[in-house]
Design a binder for these strands. Structure first.
Length: 519
DNA sequence: TTAGGGTTAG
């Protein structure tokens, strides 16, 4: 074209974006600025989208500034694209400030804001914006918005809100939308209702890779490793190609069900059979797999050989090994793992605490105390974790060892009783977290170091009236045996409430029982 | 010629 105009330039950039060449779209924008053709609002929205895809925050900010100067700072579409861009680049506050600055918003703007929160692990704020949308806007949420809302519910384990959103999906006729169904499969799986997940999944005529992956991840988290392998095989047979996330899902399943050989088989088949290059996250699953069956040295050897792309990836890898070494009393490996975490400035507080606990568990009290002092001196503070349980509309939060809540005494009494009965039946002591320490040579003092999850569970057992079905996750950091014993003793058959941990779905972590057994 | 959604290991 002898004289491309603004529409020609913008079309070309939009074409690059569609074709997955967002970098080239940005390059074209730079070229365009060298000509006499001025960008318009359409151009700006397009390049902002390119920045979103590339997660290029700095470029995005420059374009944002430029847009303000050119007078597009109040345009609805430009602003919506900016909200989305800041969200994709993990600058949620940036997204919110654009959102707040807008005089007019439409459903796309609202959805972008909700998604920005949901994608950045800020589910409660996502739901808060959704509530605001419902109170301010007379338009009904559509499939795009509901997908983000349901995703926020699953990250929070909010089954009540998730069910309500499912209702909105049905009323709006969005059940056929595959993005929506995959969020539902995921949400029910993460909220303790695998049977619902399964029902929804089974009704999908031709599940996509994401829908298959969601159900595989769900099965894996439930300790149904064999089922997750069967689902994987079924999807391959049906010609659906697994992706990197799918492999994380099956490897996770193998790891949590003690299927080491099967897991290694999957790792080795990834590239050859399925064209998916194994990454650090896949090797991390395998490290976890070795750890759960007590093969710490192999896990350690593998961890050392893995190339990590960034500190966060390394933190996941070494954090896995660190907690397993603590559980197995391998102070040597724990020391190396925590050193690596601290040096890379990742989860520093957690690394100190876990190493200190590892030393304490092998009786090296002086080192354990020394590490705590070091933390104090360095001003490193560990945020206490918590668990919570939703009963009807209320949420009850619990912290480890803290009994200062209503009916705290009753909870302690119940746990003592259950613990006593488990011991009578020959299960290892400490399985409910009541630990006895030698204090001052002779006196034995009971120190309550109850896990927050168990407080939440016991509280629910007391508060939920008899006659209501109680369902318990295969969880609570118990091995299979202790879990079965606990279920039998406490008379729990099924569950109707869920105990949540702040570290997302901690309680699914079977295989790491405090009795020390692995399976 | 423009903006929005899903699955991921400790």
């Amino acid at each position: 074209m002898p004289e491309p105009n603004v529409v020609s330039w913008t079309s070309l950039m939009a074409g690059y974006v569609v074709a997955g060449q967002a970098g080239l779209a940005l390059g074209m924008y730079v070229k365009m600025l060298e000509t006499s053709v001025k960008p318009n609002d359409f151009t700006v929205s397009t390049v902002v989208k390119a920045c979103s895809i590339l997660a290029e925050l700095e470029a995005g900010k420059k374009i944002h500034a430029h847009a303000e100067v050119m007078g597009y700072g109040t345009d609805l579409v430009v602003c919506s694209s900016l909200v989305c861009m800041y969200g994709y680049c993990n600058d949620v506050n940036g997204a919110r400030s654009v959102f707040d600055s807008m005089d007019h918003r439409n459903i796309v703007t609202w959805t972008s804001m909700i998604a920005a929160y949901a994608q950045n692990g800020r589910g409660s704020e996502a739901l808060e914006v959704f509530r605001l949308f419902n109170s301010m806007v007379r338009v009904r949420a559509n499939d795009f918005m509901l997908a983000s809302v349901i995703s926020a519910c699953s990250s929070l384990g909010k089954l009540v809100a998730g069910r309500a959103s499912h209702g909105a999906v049905i009323r709006g006729g969005h059940e056929v939308n595959d993005v929506v169904t995959s969020t539902l499969v995921d949400m029910y799986g993460k909220s303790g209702c695998f049977d619902y997940s399964w029902k929804i999944f089974k009704r999908i005529p031709n599940p996509s890779v994401v829908e298959y992956t969601s159900i595989i991840v769900g099965a894996s988290k439930y300790g149904l490793g064999k089922l997750s392998i069967e689902l994987f095989e079924e999807m391959v047979e049906r010609g659906v190609n697994p992706n990197d996330v799918t492999f994380v899902g099956v490897l996770h399943g193998c790891s949590h069900s003690g299927l080491v050989d099967e897991g290694l088989g999957f790792l080795n088949s990834m590239l050859e059979k399925h064209g998916v290059e194994p990454e650090a996250k896949h090797y991390t699953c395998v490290v976890d797999m070795y750890c759960r069956v007590g093969r710490l040295d192999e896990a350690h050897k593998l961890a050392k050989s893995i190339h990590v792309e960034n500190p966060a990836e390394g933190a996941l890898l070494w954090g896995t090994l660190l907690s397993a070494s603590r559980l197995h009393g391998r102070v040597d490996i724990a020391q190396e793992a925590s050193r690596r975490l601290i040096e890379s400035n990742q989860q520093v507080a957690g690394a100190y605490v876990t190493l200190s606990n590892a030393c304490a568990s092998t009786g090296e009290w002086e080192i354990a105390h020394g590490l705590r002092s070091q933390m104090k001196q360095a001003g490193v503070v560990k945020d206490p974790g918590c668990s919570w349980v939703e009963i009807r509309d209320s949420t009850f939060v619990f912290h480890a060892g803290d009994l200062s809540f209503e009916r705290g005494e009753d909870v302690l009494r119940l746990l003592r009783e259950l613990e006593g009965r488990m011991k009578e039946r020959g299960y290892a002591g400490g399985s409910l977290g009541l630990v006895f320490f030698e204090v001052e040579q002779e006196a034995k003092e009971e120190i309550v170091s109850l896990h927050s999850e168990r407080l939440a569970l016991a509280f629910a057992l007391i508060v939920i009236p008899k006659g209501i079905t109680i369902r318990v996750m295969k969880n609570l950091r118990m091995c299979k045996d202790c879990h079965e014993a606990f279920k039998a003793i406490s008379g729990i058959v099924e569950r109707d409430f869920i105990v949540r941990d702040v570290n997302r779905f901690h309680h699914f972590r079977d295989g790491s029982c405090s009795c020390g057994d692995f399976w």
